[in-house]
Amino acid sequence: MPLFAGVDVGSSATKAVLVDEHLRVLGRGTGDSGADFAGAAESAFEQALGQAGVTRDIIGYVVSTGYGRGNVAFANAQRTEIHCHAKGAFHLFPRAITVVDIGGQDNKIIQVDRRGRRLDFAMNRKCAAGTGSFLEEIAHRLRIPLQDLSGMASRSTDVTVSIGSYCTVFAQTEILAKIRAGIKREDLARAAMVSVARRVLETLAVSNEVVATGGVVAHNPPMKEILSEILGVVVHVPPHAQHVGALGAAITAAGK
């Protein structure tokens, strides 16, 4: 029986997923997209093959998605990340949901009905606000490694601290002022995540359960509770949240 692959070449990370005809996940791969999308796709795909313990010739169909979807030479077809995230999230939560994907350079909000049909979607505007790169900038300003931002945010004790400006540059100056005023880094780290969640709130009305996907929620556990608080709905973060787009692409490749 052939297997099916989905490759999601995002602006920051490239993800690959292999599924069988029953849509069971057999392998995953991840890597930095860097400046070589084709190479990143190749290596994430290889990783997934290795994890599944199979070789390329068993793959029946490959669908690519994400910013670099056009750079995947071995893909049989391309679909947008909007389609693939909706598909992947609905597979995991087969009911009316709102998919909130927060990626490195953009975020997408997608409304899916109870049959899995997309009703509406919106992408963020043309800046870093509400994306992973906003958090990167803030971590940099706080002089902490990005991977420590999450732990720091979870130790916040003052949830009233907020960052009002969404422009990354304005936010940085605001943070400087707050550091000067003696506000703790922990509280500022959390405030940065609240800012990301607020941008989601502004993008599209969210009325049902949210399935949050993408690297930002995968790597920052406090985001789940923050999103839920800001949006006022139940928020699910599936395991392997970063791979939901690639999963959706693999499901599409399987023709499901």
Binding site: Y67, R79, T80, E81, I82, H83, R118, F121, M123
Partner: peptide, 10 residues
Amino acid sequence: RTSIEAFIEQ
């Protein structure tokens, strides 16, 4: 471009 493509998919 992605939005347009996704809209047509929809």
